[in-house]
Amino acid sequence: MKVVKIEGLTKRFGDLVAVDNVKLEIESGEIYGLLGPNGAGKSTMINIMCGLIPMNKGSVSILGYSIEKQNKDAKKNIGIVPQDIAIYEDLTAYENVKFFASLYGLRGSLLRERVYEALEFVGLKENAKSFPSKFSGGMKRRLNIACAIAHRPKLIIMDEPTVGIDPQSRNHILQSVKKLNSMGCTVVYTSHYMEEVEEICSRISIIDHGKIIAEGTKEELKSIITDTNTVLITVNSISTVKEEELKKIKGVKSVEFDEDLVKVNSIKEINNLDKIILYFTENGISIRNIESTTPDLETVFLTLTGRKLRD
């Protein structure tokens, strides 16, 4: 069963095409990763999926309900964990979850039960009567999640839920996502932490300039660039390395710099390692270390978009 079905989705802000004719289908039970640099169109897509902004063209349905025509039915099935923590500092943890859950029609003892269930799920039951102003960043993030799940949505959209928190809280959240998924929730997950996406997502879309430029499982995405060899060269003086010169070498697709490390991605079929080393030696750049790697999602992303995820 398709939990999310997007067809021909287009959204414009004036002359800017934020989402360009996107087609996307998410099956029930998936943890679906949305990857894209800032301004790629992820947020706009999520806003449209949640019925927060209208689209210019196309259709979006959640569990078969059109977000435009059956807005309330569609929204009832969604729980959203926004990137910015959306809670009331002047209400206790319990009151926060209770208020947001009551907007989904929960009342009385069922509401109370679900609120405590959600707080327990994120490990905040003991802090139910505390105010978020006394919470750590991680606890606030967990409360942010509790507010999104108390009404037991079938689809949970999480946007960067682990930004700016300690590793322990991050781990707790990732475990929670997996647990929610095992309980039958479909999750749409966006993150800047590639390793998180690699760890929990069953399928991933890479979005750039409002378009989905690649989609599939981790393995499928990596296979897109299995024709790529990556050589990592550690040098003494990185400022003297010219990206354009390296790109002139036959087979080099992209070059990336990270402190004193130069990453050179080349077409697998072309053996150009000797020429790359020659470039460094001819230009008097001393090599401290050299190694070859298999591609990860970061490489896939860089190869496809020409940008780092955090650009």
Partner: peptide, 14 residues
């Protein structure tokens, strides 16, 4: 500003 408005509007609330 504190985003609660948007969380409210993502519920079945216009």
């Amino acid at each position: 500003r504190n985003r609660t408005y948007y969380r409210i509007c993502s519920a079945p609330v216009s």
